[in-house]
Simulated scan of single mutants.
Amino acid sequence: MDLTLVGVGKKVGSQTWLYDMSLQPCSGAVTVLLGATQAGKTSLMRIMAGLDAPSHGDVKVNGCSVVGVPVRKRNVSMVYQQFINYPSMTVRDNIASPMKLGGEKNIAQRVNVLAEKLHIEMFLDRYPSELSGGQQQRVALARALAKGAPLMLLDEPLVNLDYKLREELRDELSALFAEGESTVIYATTEPGEALLLGGYTAVMDQGELLQYGPTAEVFQKPKSLRVARAFSDPPMNLLAASVVAAGVQLKGGPLLAMALPATSSGKLTVGMRASALRVHFQEGDVALPGKVELAEISGSDTFVHVDSLVGDLVAQLTGVHYFELGAQVSLYLSPDQIYIFDEQGMMLLAPVRGGGR
């Protein structure tokens, strides 16, 4: 399916839910809508599905406008945060229902394959009321995948699952999406989920589309601070700096010897991802000494909060590490992993942006 949004916007009363945006998701691939709660992701997906009409702009499928075409006349499948299943049907019949409507063959075999991949094969003869919330959500996912619709919309489908299962299903879903031919739109608040799913990412914030392009490119070269904030978890470390003859001078800290575009001048904002900071020196690193204010272990990572000479910093270290509060520590990072924005954060100055859409 070739889906195109042209100048789409949405107003409800005096409130603007979606500002004018144009977007053409890559056909047959995954496009992630990434943004915080109330960024506009669900509103945009409802317009794509035909559940809501835009206040202005056009939605085209294969070059033809579908604004006003009801959702029942569109070949679309959608999974919400809150699972929706047929309560009077077993899990087996729930998954099989779209295939039966489509007159498919080998239904039983396909149901078993999907159930196994989503870890619900042992529940096929149960009813939704006999399952946990996470299990019911997996049934809804299986049914959406079984439909094989050319457009599949998933609105934070894993948010109600436990951490371990989310990690497993992300890998499974990536494989299932790759096997199919559907255009997949996947909404999430988690930058890590966008990176794992790959494909393309559209970063949204407060109803605006900020940047769209290949996921790795958007992550590596966010065009503004708003994009960098939305695509960083934990939040990107931001420091004040200024342009000097030899490069970039951090306020109260070291000089970063790096070239900037000739148009840049005056004050700057320097961004450092928490995952780029280390406690072990490597050749060419910049050192940022300070003292430990807090060290917390989360999953397989340790987050170290440091009061440094350039300001408060958070480092994300792989593995379990122990630090005494108040201990002196130096954080290190490579200049290649530093982001330079203008003072207002409206433009990325370094690294130079690529050609993301």
Rank of each mutant, 00 (worst) to 15 (best):
K100A: 04
P150E: 06
R126I: 10
G7K: 08
K251A: 15
R357K: 11
L141G: 01
F219W: 03
L3P: 09
K221W: 06
V6M: 08
Y322W: 02
Y332H: 09
N94D: 12
Q220I: 10
S77M: 05
S22L: 09
S330C: 12
R74Q: 03
K60E: 03
E156H: 06
R166D: 03
M21E: 04
E190V: 13
W17K: 04
V329E: 02
Q220K: 15
Y19A: 03
C64S: 15
K164C: 02
T183I: 08
L44V: 13
N62C: 08
G148P: 00
E104K: 08
V59M: 05
K60V: 11
D125G: 01
S65K: 11
C64M: 14
V79C: 10
A187K: 00
T189Q: 06
M1L: 13
Q81F: 01
Q316D: 01
H119M: 14
Y186T: 04
Y80N: 09
V329F: 07
M152Y: 05
G68E: 12
I185Q: 01
A144Y: 08
R138A: 12
I338A: 10
T42L: 02
Q344D: 11
V248Q: 07
D155K: 04
S308M: 00
V139K: 14
L169I: 14
G213P: 07
A187S: 10
S224M: 09
